[in-house]
Amino acid sequence: MSWFDSKWLTKLLLCVLAILLCGCATYKPPDNIQTLYEGVSQKGSADLSVTSNEFEVRCLPIINEKVAKTNLGILPEEFEVLPVFLKVENISQNPIKVDLPNSFITIGEKQTTYMDIDSVVDRIAKKDADAAIGLGLVFGMLGGITGGAVGGAVGAVIDSSKVGSRTVEGHYYRQSFNPVFIQPKNSGSGLVFYHLSEEDLDCEGLTLSIPIMDLNTNNISNAKFTFKPANFKTIKEDRK
């Protein structure tokens, strides 16, 4: 009996497949923006706010791994993104626009940019494809024809079983910051993403600037938030 068709190898491959499938089933996207907000605003998480005569902005950077994994289904570090839950209330008499494409993060001399939800999903999808191809190759190398078949099946599972980008895609689009045009006495809320490399997470401090435009006077005000990401990597519950 050759090594690749022995029962133990098939069992091992099936176990790995089962573990992968179990892993796929653990993430349940929050039903709506309110549930997402409750999920990311845990005690000890970053919760920053700025108030002016025209607006109130609340900013919750999602840095803690557990909070991110539970509510967004990803580890932001892996994709070099900083997710932020944002809530903007228009307390002025004029309509305002939250100018997200012109918002940015400053770290020392460096500036990093806002990422459209579509780019974030593409970034996650790129890793899905890599993972599917990689696993197919690994199984192929491990078990010849049998392994190749299992590898193909695993690849197909990853392709179609809502792992990674396909699971989070609809959820991210639905829960992205909306509306960006806010009438007086109304508010907008939801997810926004910024590019942030892994090493930037250990920086001494970063500043997030969000321009907000009064649509009648065309005046632009900046809501600024400064924080040290490392302070929010773990929350009290994790430290126990």
Binding site: D116, A125, D159
Partner: peptide, 19 residues
């Protein structure tokens, strides 16, 4: 803000996605 199309690769097939 965005006018973009790219291809999403699967194991056996692919498709185009525009935003």
């Amino acid at each position: 803000e965005r006018f973009w199309v790219n291809e999403r690769m699967g194991t056996w097939s692919e498709n185009a996605k525009a935003y």
